Simulated scan of single mutants.
Amino acid sequence: MPNRSEPQVITAGLLRDWALPVPTGGKETRGTVLVVGGSRVTPGAVLLAGVAALRAGAGVLQLAAAESTAAALSIQVPEALVVGLPETADGAVAGRRSPRLDELAADADVIAVGPGLHDIDETRVLLHQVLDAAGKHTSLVLDAYALGALSHEPALLAEAGRPAVLTPNLTEARHLLGRDPGDDLAAEAAELADRYRAVVSLYGHVADPDGRRWREESGDAGLGTSGSGDVRAGLLAGLLSRGAAPAQAACWAAFAHAVSGQRLIPRFGRIGFLARELLDEIPQTLATI
């Protein structure tokens, strides 16, 4: 296990000294993000993640979700290419191979898997398909049920050497750890980073498998709202698409997610804002860092 540093507090000053890449040229220079997720009853998770990726600066957005939701998503997110995936009888995305998904995964710069998925067995098959099709240097963001699938097969990342960020909540961290997380979430994030050989962002605690650690202290109770995690996953994907390294993207995303929430408090109170209202705050938050 690598030597663990003392966590650094993520501040605007720290991020200014760790500036994001500034792409030049057309949208291709800001990369392509593919979001894979959604089910018949949770298409909004893909919408939130996808729009967050665009708000963070991604150049091209592609969404792959349950077939029954594709038409609605294409109308709600006209900026994206939307592909319908096979689904099960109860509306979950099915693990059946999709040649179109293979094509999109092969060409994407960043793939976010998990928002809105809800069948663990189908998700395991789907995750295999995405990883088989993606290039070895394609960056990954794994969230929600994709983390549950990963917990059954840690070698999918640990032995692959892929650039990846995991964004667990406490329930997902329990699956990844194989036990209940303790009170020291910084230590738990570091253990997960070492075990899965990926950057981990756990409730404001960011850990890199090389031993570096950070913590974000601006987050407030309002971020604990439905869909907020989908926004954070998409924000991360957008920053990776711009060329940020995984740990850098995770730190910037943790700060921007928290500060975007803070910006909404004067209008909606500490716990009154919605996840979708975070989206419009992201560009200004990033610009003012």
Rank of each mutant, 00 (worst) to 15 (best):
A244C: 06
R195F: 04
L192E: 04
F268V: 14
D210P: 08
V199K: 04
G261P: 05
L176V: 00
Y196M: 11
L239I: 04
A247S: 14
A221E: 15
L278M: 01
S241G: 10
R197I: 04
L185F: 06
A207G: 02
R179F: 08
R242Q: 10
E216Y: 06
G238N: 02
A250K: 12
G211N: 13
V200N: 12
G211Q: 13
G227T: 12
G211D: 14
A254V: 03
L236S: 09
E277F: 05
S218C: 12
E277S: 12
P209I: 09
A221V: 13
I265C: 09
D208L: 02
L176T: 03
D208K: 10
G261Y: 09
E217L: 04
A198Y: 04
G234A: 10
G243Y: 01
V206T: 10
L202P: 12
R267W: 14
L264M: 11
G178I: 04
G224Y: 10
A249W: 00
D210K: 12
L239S: 00
A254N: 02
A249G: 08
A245F: 03
E188N: 05
A256I: 02
A221W: 10
P181M: 07
L279Q: 02
R212K: 10
A187Q: 04
A258F: 03
G224P: 03
W214K: 11
V259S: 01
A245E: 15
W214T: 06
Q248S: 14
A189Q: 07
A237G: 13
V231E: 07
L274T: 15
A256H: 02
A189M: 00
L236H: 08
A193S: 14
A244F: 10
L278A: 03
D230Q: 14
L185D: 15
A187Y: 00
D184F: 01
R215T: 13
L192N: 13
A207D: 11
G229E: 11
G227K: 09
A258Y: 00
R232K: 13
A198F: 00
D220V: 14
D183F: 10
L202T: 11
S228Y: 10
A256R: 00
D184Q: 00
D230M: 06
R215H: 14
L223I: 03
E216Q: 14
D194H: 11
G234T: 06
C251M: 12
V199W: 07
A245Y: 03
V206N: 01
A189H: 04
A254T: 08
A275Q: 12
H257Q: 00
D230G: 04
E191A: 07
H257Y: 13
R267L: 14
W214E: 12
A245H: 13
R212E: 01
G238D: 01
G227P: 06
